[in-house]
């Protein structure tokens, strides 16, 4: 098997995640799909690292994880405060530019 298949898998996962972001209304699930996309990217980075024979790709993936962690913290906080004010976690409910 050619390791390039990891890239195809990453592309597939990324696409699934993106489609999920577009389709789902629940902010938490949307958020999960974003995480899925990030993970797909990480997989691609790791595969690139193997391809190029150095560790820079892994470093980038590592940073991605850190940023994702920060993003999750803030994003979930936003979801929680949104839920508090609207009693709903639907992204469509936040369609007006005010709370």
């Amino acid at each position: 098997m050619n390791p390039v298949n990891y890239l195809y898998l990453a592309a597939l996962l990324f696409t699934i995640g993106a489609t999920g972001v577009l389709i789902r209304r629940n902010a938490i699930v949307v958020f999960m799909c974003v995480e899925l996309m990030l993970n797909a990217c990480n997989l691609a980075l790791v595969a690139f690292s193997r391809m190029h024979g150095n560790l820079d790709g892994q470093i980038i993936a590592f940073f991605t994880m850190v940023v994702a962690a920060a993003e999750v913290v803030v994003g979930l906080a936003i979801i929680v405060s949104l839920f508090r004010s609207r009693h709903s976690a639907s992204v469509d409910d936040a369609s007006l530019m005010k709370l």
Partner: peptide, 20 residues
């Protein structure tokens, strides 16, 4: 999603990214 992530972890290991 958790399951998928675990599998990805396995793939990282398979690709030599043990730490990741």
């Amino acid at each position: 999603l958790a399951g998928t992530m675990i599998i990805l972890a396995v793939f990282y290991l398979a690709n030599g990214a043990y730490f990741l």
